[in-house]
């Protein structure tokens, strides 16, 4: 995109993945995956994210990654961060089974030609 003369900016919520990848401009909102622009129905925050991202495009002279001050809980409670992909002892057998099912499904899809063909 950049080489074609199109300036890009990522607005997302996975700091480590995006900065590991390396992108021209990244605005990080520290929110649960699913609402990268702001909390549901928080139109002021959503608008603020878009404007902040556009300002990055205007201002940045080199690759940049920055974190906004948006919070999921105003009181600073970050217990939601424990939820995503949490593994408990009770989950282990189910996860192992899910892995086996997933591999079987992928193999069947490959055999049926139902893939894009590259990994």
């Amino acid at each position: 995109m950049e080489e074609a003369g199109i300036a890009t900016v990522v607005i997302g919520s996975a700091w480590d993945i995006v900065t590991h990848c390396g992108v021209p401009r990244y605005l990080h909102n520290d929110l649960p995956l699913g609402n990268p622009l702001g909390k549901p129905y928080d139109s002021a925050s959503q608008r603020g994210s878009v404007i902040a991202a556009l300002e990055m495009v205007v201002d940045a002279e080199e690759p940049v990654a920055t974190q906004s001050d948006l919070k999921w809980q105003q009181d600073g409670d970050e217990s939601w961060k424990e939820n995503y992909m949490r593994i408990t002892e009770a989950d282990l057998a189910n996860l192992k089974k899910a892995g086996e099912d997933n591999r079987a499904q992928r193999l069947a899809a490959k055999k049926a030609g139902m893939t894009r063909g590259q990994t």
Partner: peptide, 19 residues
């Protein structure tokens, strides 16, 4: 995405058409 904590019912939380 974090289906425990949030939802995607508000399109504008990831698709800024109106903005």
């Amino acid at each position: 995405w974090d289906k425990v904590t949030t939802h995607t019912d508000d399109r504008q939380s990831f698709f800024p058409l109106e903005v």
